[in-house]
Amino acid sequence: MSAKIEAIRQIARRLLSEGKVDMVIGFRRGTLPMMNEPCFIRKAEEADRLVWDSHCGINLANYVTDRKERVAVVAKGCDSRNLVNHIIENKIKREKLVVIGVCCDGMLDKRLIASRSREEAGAEVDAVEDANGQVTVKAGALIWQAPREELLQDNCKRCRHRNPVLCDELVGEPVAEKTEDDYEDVKRIEAMSSDDKWAHFEEMLSTCIRCYACRNACPLCYCPTCFVDESRPQWVGKSQDPIDIRTFHFLRAYHCAGRCTDCGSCERACPVGIPVRQFTRKLNKDCEELYGWQAGLSLDQRPALDTYSPNDPNDFIR
């Protein structure tokens, strides 16, 4: 891990001192364990604040939207796919961007680690160490261990694009990629009856406080005025009524149709732990099955919802 940190700092230092970029966006250590935060470096001597470990789950593509200066971004596989999205959607110019691609081993699930620490040690997490495929968690007086694979975020367990799809600098050795996502989680819901589906999402969303953290963490959500904030016209009710909450969630998901890279930022940001990816994953599955499309893989292809082909599926139109 520390080799990657050293490489990232070196690249950042070089880019800034050579004047290739005005700013480097990366991660720095947060004030709490497992909570690395975005970090904006403008001077070469500040590059030592940058870190890289298994808690860099935030999607940094979120911070390049409409930037006028030249920026370098530290990007995992999913971040790089969102950068491709941004370029395709004209939210940043390719020539303003230096992508510091990092080959990713998957990020650890902070919520899972916290809940297991409470179970096993009855205490909050004090420190997490990650070495040789084994995660060691210090919580209160107790130390517990588990294989790294077990503690990965759900989206990282399923990830097929850990290596950056677009990069100017590469950190680390490319890792082996999974070839398929079985979408087993989506299929489980698809198999339910309509009433069960409704009840499932009712239960799932019952704790939502409508803080919009999922929207704010998402690099796809860059509209100047979001539909939930608009009051003329008011697209969606602003109350805590279950149907208003549900309307927000499925409209948000629809806005991500054919664009979502399943980076997991929304789920990671949710303060009450709602698995909001269940909505976007369904759309990802549909996009893949109907159009053979996965978002953000190439600069040369137009997104599924942006193209027309005579053999597009249209059975749903009667």
Binding site: I189, S194, D196, K197, A199, R246, F279, K282, I317, R318
Partner: peptide
């Protein structure tokens, strides 16, 4: 329909 709206209620 994935969210639990009955098939046939929404049509195109």
């Amino acid at each position: 329909e994935h969210m639990g709206v009955e098939p046939g209620r929404l049509q195109f």
